[in-house]
Amino acid sequence: MVKVIICVIAYLVLAPFVGGILAGLDRKISARMQGRVGPPILQPFYDVLKLTEKENITVNRVQDFYVMCFFIFVLVTGGLFFAGENLLLVMFTLTLASVFLIIAAFSSNSPYSEVGAERELLQMLAYEPMVLITCVGFYMFTGSFQVGQIMLSTQMPLPYLIGLFIGFVFILTIKFRKSPFDLSMSHHAHQELVAGLKTEFSGKTLALVEAAHWYENVFLLGMVFLFFVNGQWWGYVIGAVVCLGTYFLEILIDNSFARMKWQVAINSAWIVALVLGTVNLFMLLFI
């Protein structure tokens, strides 16, 4: 019990720092890939702290409430995950959090954020099947949906869940809002939807959205880590290295692709889920 509390508190306290530094590395590496010097690593922290200093302009009162709900439920998602709770519950909480963000965007009645919200719904449609199949894969491999139980597994899940791993990394591009699939909003400037989903958020509200993304990213990397636990220290080391490698891969993909249409996002994500996901599940059945 004490261990669980420590894990959750460590997540709540450390995740923004880890997430922020990852975001800073992202911008720095992206800049280097484009032949620029790039901002300091701590730039995302400066950005968020600056946003908290700005005047508060909100289109309506409910918007702030929904964004707050989004933030809280992202924290709950990560908290449940690091507390070793049920993987399905964790994923459904994350979906709920995303729904709050979408409602917040819809509530502003701005055409840009509405289109952004619609695209975000399409993105959810694209990645949800793969996320659920991943959870089922973990269940079939370890016999439990509890993250705590999966962590106790003495065999590394990766060789058995390799298809699911590739599929999950594929949809991470959508979840991290990286380039071929950054339909609803992009971390980079100027796009046809102004800032998409977050067009109408400003000041502290936008700061909350950014901070929530840091929490979310750390949680998602935690999911990647879960593929490598085998109860031994070297499993943890490999997991951590692969997490960083995955993040780097996403940055590389981000910088080498132009944005694609939403049809491509849905089709490719579903094909990946169908082929890699279900084939892997059937393989698990017969092993």
Partner: peptide
């Protein structure tokens, strides 16, 4: 652009008045 790269100083071109300073 890379020549001057003002993102070194944290400058981002937002294209959105609600995010701009």
């Amino acid at each position: 652009m890379p020549m001057y790269d003002v993102e070194r100083f944290g400058v981002i071109n937002t294209g959105n008045p609600k995010h701009a300073d």
